[in-house]
Design a protein around this nucleic acid. Structure first.
Length: 929
RNA sequence: GGGCGAUUAGCUCAGUGGGAGAGCGCUGCCUUCACACGGCAGAGGCCACUGGUUCGAUCCCAGUAUCGCCCA
């Protein structure tokens, strides 16, 4: 079977397109189950359906594809399952922005029409990212593509919800949650990002109700919320405040009095004045303190984080203040409140105070703690086995430095707020009977999430907030039509949807067909490896572990490989607003996909963020070209190869390169076993370029290029054979170029991707050949250094003199003579130095080698002398340091015998080298005079 | 405030209880029939700082400084 010749230059674009289509057409990414083989599976971290491929995806997918291609070639039944995530809030925001551009809001469309619109958008843009993932070469089984809101996954979501509810692990309750006043929905704790800002600490006077002359000074960073205070807290053991505990203070700007309570948890005696206000409805710590002390909660902000006039009225705020503050934002309200305090001489002091501000992870709006009825997952019982799984090693986290991070978070896990007041997502499978819940549905009047004057609604009720936490839901796998309690048919579904991460948590098993016991689930679950970034360790990984164990009784994956974040060359996080985004697609078309993949893999060192510099991609593009040209060269000599000959019967360069190839195979496999993609690529690069191309091909040239050279046929065989193995070894990282090269050589089989991955050959490792190579390389580089030093062009044929310090090495050198002569294009005289025409020779020393290079009489030797002097100095320094050590009695007494032996041997060698160098220095000096 | 990590050549980063490494960049030479996206040679580093452990520390330990991340 003959194949077309390789083009002169590598054209990644055409090659990638061709083979991408070929792989897809022949469905080569599908698992090929065989009776015996074990399985290897990865589920993709589903990218957002509306997203486009960014560099983080490129890294994530490249690493997964390397693993998958590697395991597939190893013969395992391999599945990489692709899919996308509906990404509730993020996607809804995108579509709402589109509507906004048309002058519409979601309420204008209504729920059904809005959701329809999002589906349309999903269909339109959802395939963009999939096409881009394919372009990257990702060998996912596209026939198994899933989406978090497709039918099967939705069934799994409902199954899980109902079962957790029935077990009491899902409940609804009125709690303080994080609320985004722009997205108008609850968020879970981890969906809040904290940002450090310069804040102000206000010291405010709270006078005793009984004795206005006496007052407490309360310190707060949020003075506007004092209107909702329901107590002041001091430390029970703080002598300053002992006498106040149990008394009442008059709350500034209101007609209310509130108690002074003792609380050792809330109060830090060192902070501020040691007295803090308690505002249960607007601060998480205060909420808990309120519960400890049975304090009421007064909500003074509405769902848009504006001052709620009705709330102020309930809080008995002075009428003039109420009028000033009504519907003001927090930002605007703060100066109004502080000004009012100042006027009443209640503001004592303002000081700078750094503080953390919580922001919505989707839109960066400042979030507010907000009291509202929400759905929660009771996490503690789910977390316990998830902690155990990692502790016992049933799940490995790699690198294991993140293990403690995971465990720490899991051990302190808070209940998970899973309801979102948006429309795009899995609607909560809970229904309410209007008849049975008459008193628990706030159809009119002031509900949380409304803005009202005197209880009259001015805006539509927000989503679920009108259903009080007392309402009794009907939670069911199938939609109920009648109320099981009263038989009435006036039931409606909870309008909230689930947190997008709820469905993601089921991903490893829901995508394989669960709750059905499908063959896929049997074959591929638990999955083998999860590859993800650190940023979603808690959002996703932790929850998958909890849900996986809970519902399948097995861990969802064996290994979790956590890769780094990709930053720009300056180490900054990439973001559109900074304009420092590196677009992987641009780079792929600029340098080739293989080059980008190799770059990302090479930078994936554990525990460190990746600063992506463009020069690296360029460098690996050059590497691809290098391989390409090696392929072109080999193709010139591919014909006339002899059938395989045992390595021992091959010439020295062949023996050497097979030994090195064997070494590289071992290193690459080992690196991949350990998820050291950086080491795998570095071994490949080093071996292919600096051993195979730089030396083997050069050493092979004489036997290839001289007609009828006796080694010709065998060398051709070695060349073709080793190059084919290299393609397979490199394939998982650089799938396109390796396929192209492999296909253009004679081959059997459809694709390189289904060929076996290289394994070590027991007979290939050859220490004698490696030793000889080191000798040869030493001789060649020493000669070249001398040539450069003497300004002799590399092309000029010379007579080079050479010898070693022992007969065995000299014999080895004689054996290598033809190879050295051809590489140096010179003639060798391998005789003892005594026989050299020393007056006209520069002697150079390298280990136990001495090389002599003829000197033109008219050459300026000053520079050469300088160089040799420098060398002598360096060697001498090393020598005396080593000598001191070897001579030290404590060293001789305490060091390992092998270390002593080695040091002594090195000392002897150094002595020899030093002697030789000194003599050559002397000889040069003589020539100068 | 708590935790974790980093600090090695101009830049980006490997690495090891006993002789400091790579890639890129830089300097010089070379268009020799696979490749100038190339070849050859070379310069460049008290391995952040201060102590400690050790016969011996860039590596282990403690502290300091700077930077980064996570959590509160």
């Amino acid at each position: 079977m003959s194949s077309p010749q390789l083009d002169k230059t590598y054209n990644p674009k055409a090659v990638e397109q061709q083979w991408g289509a070929y792989w897809a057409e022949h469905k080569l990414f599908q698992p090929r189950p065989t009776e015996e083989s074990e399985s290897y599976s990865i589920v993709i971290p589903p990218p957002n359906v509306t997203g486009s491929l960014h560099i983080g995806h490129a890294l994530n997918h490249t690493l997964q594809d390397i693993l998958i291609r590697w395991k597939r070639m190893q013969g395992l039944t391999t599945l990489w399952l692709p899919g996308t995530d509906h990404a509730g809030i993020a996607t809804q925001n995108v579509v709402e922005r589109q509507l906004q551009a048309e002058g519409l809001g979601r309420d204008d469309l209504g729920r059904a029409a809005f959701i329809e619109r999002v589906w349309k958008w999903k269909e339109q843009s959802g395939n963009t990212i999939l096409a881009q993932i394919q372009q990257l070469g990702a060998s996912c089984d596209w026939d198994r593509l899933r989406f978090t809101m497709d039918e099967g996954l939705s069934r799994a979501v409902r199954e899980v919800f109902v079962r957790l509810y029935e077990e009491g692990l899902i409940y609804r309750g009125e709690r303080l949650i994080n609320w985004c006043p722009r997205c108008l929905t609850a968020l879970s704790d981890i969906e809040v990002e904290h940002e450090d800002i310069k804040g102000t600490l206000y010291h405010i006077r709270y006078a005793l109700t009984d004795d206005p002359e006496i007052y407490l000074t309360v310190a707060t960073t949020r003075p506007e919320t004092l209107l909702g205070d329901t107590a002041v807290a001091v430390h029970p053991e703080d002598p300053r405040y002992q006498q106040f505990i149990g008394k009442q203070v008059k709350l500034p700007l209101t007609t209310r009095s509130i108690p002074i309570v003792a609380d050792s948890i809330l109060v830090d005696r060192e902070f501020g004045t040691g007295a803090v206000k308690i505002t249960p409805a607007h601060d998480f710590n205060d909420f808990e303190a309120g519960e400890r002390h049975g304090l009421p909660s007064l909500t003074i902000l509405d769902y848009k984080a504006r001052i709620d006039p009705l709330g102020l009225k309930n809080a008995m705020v002075d009428a003039d203040i109420l009028a000033l503050l009504s519907l003001k934002s927090v930002e605007d309200a703060r100066p109004i409140v502080t000004e009012a305090l100042k006027q009443r001489d209640l503001l004592i002091q303002e000081e700078d105070h750094p503080m953390a501000l919580g922001k919505c992870y989707r839109c960066k709006t400042v979030v507010e703690p907000y009291l509202s009825p929400q759905w929660f997952v009771k996490t503690a019982p789910l977390a316990a086995p998830a902690i155990e799984a990692v502790e016992t090693g049933a799940i490995r986290i790699i690198p294991d430095g993140w293990k403690n991070n995971y465990l720490g978070w899991m051990r302190n896990i808070k209940d998970w707020c899973i309801s979102r007041q948006i429309w795009w997502g899995h609607q909560i499978p809970a229904w309410y009977c209007r008849t049975c819940n008459k008193e628990h549905l706030l159809e009119t009047g002031h509900a949380v999430g409304t803005t009202a004057e005197e209880g009259i609604l001015t805006e539509p009720i927000r989503m679920s907030c009108f259903i009080t936490s007392d309402a009794k839901p009907i939670v069911s796998k199938t939609d109920p039509t009648v109320c099981p309690q009263c038989g009435g048919s006036d039931v409606f579904q909870d309008p909230d949807v689930l947190d997008t991460w709820f469905s993601s948590a089921l991903w490893p098993f829901s995508t394989l067909g669960w709750p059905e016991q499908t063959p896929d689930l049997k074959t591929f679950y638990p999955t083998s490896t999860l590859v993800t970034g650190l940023d979603i360790l808690f959002f996703w990984v932790a929850r998958m572990i909890m849900m996986g164990i809970k519902f399948t009784g097995q861990v969802p994956f064996r290994d979790v490989y956590i890769h780094a974040l990709v930053r720009d060359a300056e180490g900054q996080k990439m973001s559109k607003s900074k304009g420092n985004v590196i677009d992987p697609l641009t780079k792929m078309s600029q340098y080739g996909t293989d080059a980008l993949r190799f770059t990302l893999a090479s930078m994936a060192s554990p525990g460190r963020d990746i600063k992506l510099a463009e020069e690296r991609i360029e460098g690996y593009r050059n590497f691809a070209t290098k391989i390409w040209n090696a392929g072109r060269f080999i193709q010139l000599y591919a014909d006339g190869a002899k059938a395989a000959v045992p390595p021992a019967s091959r010439p020295f360069p062949d023996q050497w390169i097979l030994s090195r190839l064997n070494h590289c195979i071992r290193e690459v496999n080992q690196a991949l076993e350990n998820y050291r993609f950086d080491q795998a690529t570095s071994h490949l690069y080093q071996f292919i370029w600096h051993e195979y191309c730089d030396w083997f091909i050069e050493l092979a040239k004489p036997s290839l290029q001289q007609e009828h050279h006796p080694d010709g046929p065998v060398t051709r065989q070695t060349l073709v054979e080793s190059f084919e193995i290299i393609q397979r070894l490199l394939h998982p990282v650089m799938p396109f170029i390796t396929e192209e090269i492999w296909q253009s050589f004679p081959h059997e089989g459809m694709s390189i991707m289904t060929q076996p991955f290289p394994t070590e050959h027991p007979g290939w490792t050859n220490s004698q050949a490696e030793h000889d190579y080191a000798l040869l390389q030493g001789f060649v580089t020493t000669t070249r250094t001398g040539r450069a030093l003497l300004n002799i062009p590399a092309t000029a044929p010379l007579t080079i003199w050479g010898t070693t310090t022992n007969p065995v090495e000299t014999a080895n050198l004689q054996k290598l003579q033809p190879y050295i002569e051809s590489i140096l294009r010179s003639t060798l005289q391998l005789t003892p130095t005594a026989t050299w025409p020393s007056a006209h020779i520069l002697q150079l020393v390298n280990g136990n080698l001495t090389v002599g290079i003829p000197i033109e009489s008219n050459l300026d030797l000053q520079q050469v002398v300088k160089k040799v002097k420098k060398q002598v100095e360096a060697k001498h320094k090393e020598y005396s340091r080593l000598q001191d050590r070897v001579a030290s009695p404590t060293f001789r007494e305490k060091a390992e015998p092998s270390v002593i032996q080695e040091s002594e041997a090195r000392l002897t060698n150094l002595r020899q080298e030093l002697d030789l160098l000194t003599s050559s220095e002397q000889q040069l000096a003589n020539m100068l005079t």
